[in-house]
């Protein structure tokens, strides 16, 4: 009885801590992106609110919350109101399966540093990432605006072009780790992280992840130069904020996924596991920001060509090769 209660309390504490950490991280990632991009572009970035602009996220939230929550004429009300939530919630849910540190010993209990270690963690992640696009598609469709609609359509077209190769890039990982559980995948990388074992899968996954995060060079669904604001053209206030936050949470999640699948998760010498995990995730986030600062945007038909004609065959080939090597090494 007591044991059960402690378990529940521990899970609740873990949930609370993770939620707080992720929300803070997403908020400060926005600031970091603005600061880093500004440095790359000979600007200063936000520096008015608080020391070095550190209070800027707070100011942004207050601004978004106090703005008018606008509903466009003849919009599909419920879908319109629901869509931003879908974008944010699916992003947050994904973090449930991410192991961010080695198990801790608390009160004689072994406390795994993951909310729940699902034995189908990989599938859970892929499923949620497919669901996330509903926020974009429904938001674009429900707005009753042609620019939003085009953004939503682009979002869907983009999803089907990278989702397959993203899934297929993970197949070799699962084959190597012999498990769908993210914790087991990390533990299987004790000898060498999978980025060294299977660099091709890493590259395919990384490209797919950039597409999944809807960031430059794959930011077609919201290409502000073409579609004004894409799927979120008609959104205002905190609903726009939810899309925005969802995007940055997604960035954290996807960086964590790359870390878990290919960079060996929390594994690393000297420093504690949680710190290694954080360092790897932040380095990836920096990489995404850097990419945004340097690359132009693809056209969405070009992304589809790229996804179907290059990434998918490569990913399939990679699965085949990995399988062959594994078979050969066993015999």
């Amino acid at each position: 009885m007591i044991d059960g209660l402690i378990m529940i309390v521990l899970i609740l504490i873990k949930l609370g801590v993770i939620f707080a950490v992720i929300m803070t991280m997403a908020a400060y990632l926005v600031l970091a992106e603005r600061k880093i991009l500004a440095r790359m572009q000979l600007r200063h970035g936000p520096n008015r609110v608080g020391p070095f602009g550190m209070m800027q996220p707070l100011a942004d939230v207050i601004k978004l919350l106090t703005k008018e929550d606008f509903l466009p004429d003849r919009a599909d009300k419920w879908l319109f109101l629901l869509a931003p939530g879908m974008a944010a919630v699916t992003a947050i849910l994904t973090f449930a399966v991410v192991p961010f540190g080695p198990p801790l010993q608390v009160f004689g209990h072994e406390l795994p540093l993951v909310v729940i270690d699902l034995n189908v963690g990989v599938l859970y992640f892929l499923g949620l990432s497919s669901l996330a696009v509903y926020g974009v598609a429904l938001g674009g469709w429900a707005s009753n605006s042609k620019y939003s609609l085009l953004g939503g359509i682009r979002g869907l077209a983009q999803l089907i072009s990278y989702e397959l190769s993203m899934g297929l890039a993970l197949v070799p990982v699962v084959m190597l780790a012999r498990s769908f559980s993210l914790t087991d995948i990390v533990l299987a990388q004790q000898a060498a992280p999978f980025i060294l074992v299977n660099p091709l899968a890493f590259l395919i996954f990384l490209v797919s992840v950039v597409a999944e995060s809807k960031r430059t060079p794959f930011d077609m669904p919201e290409a502000e130069n073409e579609l004004v604001g894409g799927f979120h053209t008609e959104y205002s206030g905190m609903r726009f904020g939810l899309f925005f936050v969802g995007e940055y949470i997604n960035l954290v999640i996807l960086s964590s996924m790359v870390t878990v699948f290919f960079l060996g998760g929390w594994l690393g010498p000297l420093l504690p596991g949680v710190i290694w995990f954080g360092v790897k995730v932040l380095a990836l986030c920096f990489f995404f920001i850097w990419v945004r600062g340097s690359l132009p945007r693809l056209r969405y038909d070009q992304l589809m060509h790229f996804g179907w004609k290059i990434l998918l065959p490569l990913a399939l080939l990679n699965v085949l090769l990995t399988g062959a090597v594994l078979l050969w090494s066993r015999t």
Partner: peptide, 13 residues
């Protein structure tokens, strides 16, 4: 032109 195609750093340079 570069900004329209998504390369925003060129804009500021």
């Amino acid at each position: 032109h570069a900004l329209d195609i998504g390369a925003m750093t060129v804009f500021l340079y």
